[in-house]
Design a protein around this nucleic acid. Structure first.
Length: 426
RNA sequence: GUGGGAGUAGCUCAACUGGCAGAGCACCGGACUGUGGCUCCGGACGUUGUGGGUUCGAUUCCCAUCUCCCACCCCA
């Protein structure tokens, strides 16, 4: 048997009802913040991710699906392609390619789609996974650099999570500084680690060399006192970064969006500057981040575009659904009525009636004239239909149909013209 | 990529130290030819993840491999 490949999966009904519920809520919330949809290719030039996400990040260095395409001639080699591991790079690429900075104001774009990372699968982690994300990007003169944009995006996310009925989320907020601050901070961090590192766990000893910021991810209790004394990025922010960060917090407070400052929050993509954030949820085990994002003021220039500061986020839709309260069963739509054609020639009559009822936006399932009535009723209640309409010779002659409500067993005869209204009313 | 756990019917799981692969739920049919849910009767259900090995005999023991789960790494 051929199975779905590792880390990928089929989403089946009724589970797909949850996905539609989440996506519809996201579209609806984004709409009121004037975000519009962008769809970028799943396939991009490999160098896009090398230059934006960063060569040294895990995502690019070991988690990408990438290969060299064939050239035009048989012998010729083609370009290096990659399945997108995230969608910010593609969005900014499109921003540059189509000169979206010529459009008025800040571009506010959202996307919903599959992303690909070649990681070891786990709960809440798949090789093909789905992100719902948004980016607010534009020329500085349009206000793209303003802390108001950061706050707007964060408040929008809080609104979406509340709308989805997801409680107990925590917004973790940090500023990771800009190109001015980071070298100074890294230096200080390394210096502080030198005397301490020998006493720390094996992982930390390795991290201290390869990526000192990752020391903050350590969960070993014995290391925590050491980690607590390490320098904070907050003390190394320059004036403009500090002012920006303070203002973001001030607006969030005015909006009553709760957040916790976490100066240990570091994000793994190279392009993040200044504001960095995560929304976490307790119910997810090790993969507790349901969404993450931040500001990327230099990304456009890195990719050869004009200065175009921006802020964005990506929601892990798979993880969001894991923390959803509504069950798939409850969200799935059930038929309003099951039509039971009874006897020869009744399929055509039932088909006509079904069409008319569907034009009233009713969900109709059709039986078959060969079924015994008992079987039709059985099937109707198994699939969760609210009503059964019996379409037999008597009914057609009288132009009035037996309408049975399955929950009560109550049955009445209803003229054809009143049938839709009758089903809609209850 | 590293360490650990698990794969048996559509689902949840049994099967003793190696001895005929089972149950519940679900599915299909009948009892009941135009009235479901309850009940009763019957039916179909399997390459025991896959491939090899040991054995008279393997779901069981061994090796390899695949997939999922947990943790790490990292991230959504």
């Amino acid at each position: 048997m051929i199975k779905s490949v590792r880390g990928t999966r089929d989403l089946l009904p009724p589970d797909t009802a949850q996905w539609n519920f989440v996506e519809a809520a996201a579209r609806d919330v984004f709409r009121t913040y004037n975000f519009q949809e962008i769809r970028t290719p799943v396939l991009e030039d490999l160098s896009l991710f090398q230059r934006s996400v960063g060569e040294e990040t895990d995502i690019v260095s070991k988690e990408m699906f990438a290969w060299q395409d064939r050239g035009r001639a048989e012998s010729e080699k083609g370009q290096w392609l990659a399945l997108r591991p995230e969608n910010t790079a593609g969005t900014v690429r499109a921003y540059i390619e189509h000169k979206l900075w010529e459009r008025p104001g800040v571009q506010k774009l959202f996307y919903i789609g599959p992303q690909f990372r070649r990681e070891r699968p786990q709960k809440g982690r798949y090789r093909q996974f789905y992100q719902i994300g948004a980016e607010a990007i534009g020329p500085p003169a349009a206000g793209s650099e303003s802390p108001a944009r950061d706050a707007e995006v964060l408040e929008m996310l809080a609104t979406l999570l509340d709308r989805l009925g997801i409680q107990d989320w925590t917004l973790q907020l940090n500023s990771v500084g800009c190109a001015n601050d980071r070298p100074r901070y890294h230096q200080a961090l390394r210096a502080a680690l030198v005397p301490a590192v020998a006493k720390m766990c094996d992982d930390c000893q390795r991290r201290a060399v390869t990526n000192p910021l990752r020391v903050f991810d350590c969960k070993v209790p014995e290391d925590q006192p050491i980690i607590a004394k390490l320098p904070s990025i907050a003390d190394y922010l320059d004036d403009s970064c500090r002012t920006h960060f303070t203002e973001v917090q001030r607006i969030l407070t005015a909006l009553s969006v709760p957040f916790v400052l976490n100066d240990r929050l570091v994000r793994g993509l190279d392009y993040y500057e200044r504001t960095a954030f995560e929304f976490t949820h307790g119910s997810l085990g090790a993969q507790n981040a349901i969404l993450g994002g931040g500001r990327y003021d230099g990304l456009s220039e890195t990719l050869g575009g004009p200065r175009a500061p921006g802020i964005g986020f990506a929601i892990g839709e798979d993880r969001l659904i894991l923390s959803l309260k509504e069950t798939a069963e409850a969200l799935a739509k059930k038929p309003d009525a099951y039509l039971a054609p009874l006897g020869p020639g009744m399929n055509a009559e039932a088909a006509k009636l079904a069409r008319d009822l569907r034009h009233h936006d009713l969900i109709i399932e059709l039986g078959d004239e060969s079924f015994r009535l008992k079987k039709s009723l059985e099937t109707a209640s198994k699939i969760g239909a609210r009503y059964v309409v019996i379409v037999g010779e008597n009914e057609v002659k009288a132009d009035a149909f037996a309408l049975k409500k399955l929950s009560t067993g109550e049955q009445v005869t209803v003229p054809r013209a009143e049938l839709a209204a009758r089903i809609l009313s209850a």
